[in-house]
Design a protein around this nucleic acid. Sequence first.
DNA 1: GCATTAACGCACG
DNA 2: CGTGCGTTAATGC
Length: 231
Amino acid sequence: MNTSIAIEKLGTPRTTGPFSLNTIFANFPERSARKGDTLLKRNHSLGYVFFLTQGMVKTLSFYPEKNKEVVNGYFTAGEMMNLEVWHATNNPKVTLKVTSAKAVYKVIPINDFRALVLQNQGLNQLMMTILLEQINKNNDRLHRLLLYKSRQRVVQFLLDYVNEIGQRVGYEYVIKKPFTHEEIGNLSDTSRQTVTTVLNELKSKNLIHFTRRYILIRNLEALVEESKKEG
DNA sequence: GCATTAACGCACG
DNA sequence: CGTGCGTTAATGC
């Protein structure tokens, strides 16, 4: 994989331009939330989709037979959330929680959303694309769990992370952390302690540097190699 | 071996 | 000053 090309794709073109989601949802008011706030409570009764314009939100599913909530993934600016309500107007398992300091989002009732999609062929196509991307992302996560060991998954998560929200600084990349080590563990299917040790190992190799506020990728190429390397 | 859980001390923000 | 982090020992497969 050519990471330099992948990095060039940074940004969210879907949020600008005449056919962007921002334009399509222009009439829906923006709402603001802070870290830890819940956008969608588990067992809510009404169907809404959400459009995230700023910040980061994680989704969790609840499994009553285990009495446990597991992290499904996270959304960044420009993404649609809770699209599952398209075929069932409520989504009782799912919770949406803000993980960044601040999040700005729009709430679109499912009936309004359906009407928009049915009258707008472009939006229809875009939704297909977005859904497939979300499915692919989940597939990739599952495949990584099957094919790679935990330390590699942490490195792979870092690479995803820098692609999505990293900022280029000279030859390095900075990620401002909306995640704790525990959350990184949830998302790369490993434990908090493993995340800590892997990150410190990468730090000692001078591939990355980090504090509680940010992660600096010092050597992206080497990190890509690290993600492929066996145990 | 490879990773998880528990446990505890420490210090960042 | 709370909780997120770093480390290690015990345990499982």
